[in-house]
Amino acid sequence: MNLPALVLQLLLLLLLAPLVSGVIKNWKAKLQNRRGPRPWQVYFDLAKFLRKDMVISEHTSWVFGFAPYVVFLSALLTGLMVPMVHLPAPLSLFGGVLAVVGLLALGRFFLALGGLDPASAFGGMGSSREMTLSAIAEPALMLAIFTVAITAKSTDLSQMALSTQSATWKLLNPAHVLAFAAMFVVLLAETGRIPVDNPATHLELTMIHEAMLLEYSGRHLAFMEWGASVKQLVLMTLLLNVFFPIGLAGPGAGAAALGISLLAYLAKLLALSAAVVVVETTNAKLRLFRVPDLLSAAFVLATLALLSTFLFH
């Protein structure tokens, strides 16, 4: 656990996360034939929210003010446990993939409580939907993780990346492809993307993630938005570096290898963002009671992935 790697990864996490959601917004706009906001617009929004005053509802308790910090810090901590550029992640000793899933659940727990606190119907609606959908998505996510963990005989993310990195033909191993598909659907559900939830919607009765943030303002809102974009970056990195660890710098890598690894990582990130944008642009939002069917389809994919681990062993 060396300090410079930890600080560097923390800075990378903080700066890259808003950029990724900004790029996704910009590409979505491009695909609608409009120029759209600059990719770095998200930074301006965050900076302005930080400077603004806050209006807090009279019904809220201390949980309302505590939740943004838990969401923000738990997202950052998961980011430090996931290998982004350098193979053993800075805090890989402190927790493997199970700890990452647990910390994301901790962030979601307090986000939902923050939604319920101001006693408004929309917050309650958002919390209820968020907890329901994440409960249905959890088994699919866990089974996909198990598939990779079993082949790597470890729940440590760096080990998992090493195991898929070592045997090259394993990249196209059907178990990995199916697990990747399942995790991609879960990624769409967790980050509130189009088939499940519409991030840019204006209709508070259809929101899932945004409904919980309706009461937050000023720096609380900035931490919540930043935490959500860091969580999105963490899930995308989990997807990329576990299933396609090409170019990931090994333990004793030099500066050059780290540079190549950074470039490979950014290229993969943009490719995954492009995939998310295409899905968002060509699909309508599912009816709320159809989303569990989508997530149970992801669960079936993960089970097939598990079966195929020992069929093609």
Binding site: K28, Q32, R34
Partner: peptide, 12 residues
Amino acid sequence: LAGDVAFLPTAS
């Protein structure tokens, strides 16, 4: 209507 179901091609 397309915008309400988040179907971006027709909405835009």
